[in-house]
Design a binder for these strands. Structure first.
Lengths: 117, 117
DNA sequence: CCCATGATTCAACGATCATTGAAATAGCAG
DNA sequence: CTGCTATTTCAATGATCGTTGAATCATGGG
């Protein structure tokens, strides 16, 4: 059986309160800024975030971000790649993601991971 | 005994994850955009929000917004006035509040109240 | 002083959350 | 097929959340 690609909500179904709820956790903000700071777009493995939390907890947080329409997760072989749904999200909530990322990036309370080689 | 003015966190102690958590509820977003759309700045009574929820539930949500550093609450006689901590918040998280409010304002899922006379 | 008004506090509830560790799954390499 | 690696799922936990309704408190007006 093929491993199914995970569920991604239609961006139009995403609602502001759910987005903010998903952002309301330091680990998830850490995942987001780490992704945003990653040069190699769409090349961030899930396994690269282990400094932030245990694998199973990461999986939980990945799902939260994904279900809030913020990130996309693509299975490729045994690995999963994570990326931000930039263009779609920008269309849906213009300007929001940029200031969220800027805010999180500036703040030392948000944990980080270096994703680039 | 004088009714004590409620607790407001030092804006420097406010952390992004807590801000987003506070924004992660439709009623609280509704309070925020209603405040933002109010012409008479600093003149919004707590009691003007009863369309959004019961008094006790409103009180709960007011506290969440206040403790996240987003709003200010000033007791004056038997009435309490609510306002957004605009300047302070803008200094602490430049640009964030504007795009949050714009996002919430644009979205029909966020309930609203008409505060002006 | 008593009462009405505006608002908060409290106790309770079920629901969801973040976290853990163990088990399951899928693909790849031998 | 066998095992190895990357990741998710599941079951269980305690904590926090959103909501309700009753009780409380503070203030101003009669």
């Amino acid at each position: 059986m093929k491993k199914p690609q995970p569920f991604h909500p239609d961006i139009e179904d995403v609602v502001p309160a759910d987005v903010f709820a998903a952002l309301g956790d330091p680990i998830r903000l850490g995942i987001l800024v780490s992704l945003a700071d990653c040069e190699e777009v769409d090349k961030a493995r899930c396994g690269a975030f282990t400094e932030l939390a245990s694998p199973s907890l990461l999986s939980y947080h990945f799902a939260k971000l994904r279900e809030a329409g913020i990130t996309r997760s693509r299975a490729e072989g045994t690995v999963r790649f994570l990326s931000i749904r930039r263009e779609e999200f920008e269309r849906r909530f213009p300007g929001l993601l940029d200031s969220v990322i800027e805010t999180a990036r500036r703040d030392p309370s948000v944990p980080r991971v270096k994703l680039d080689v």
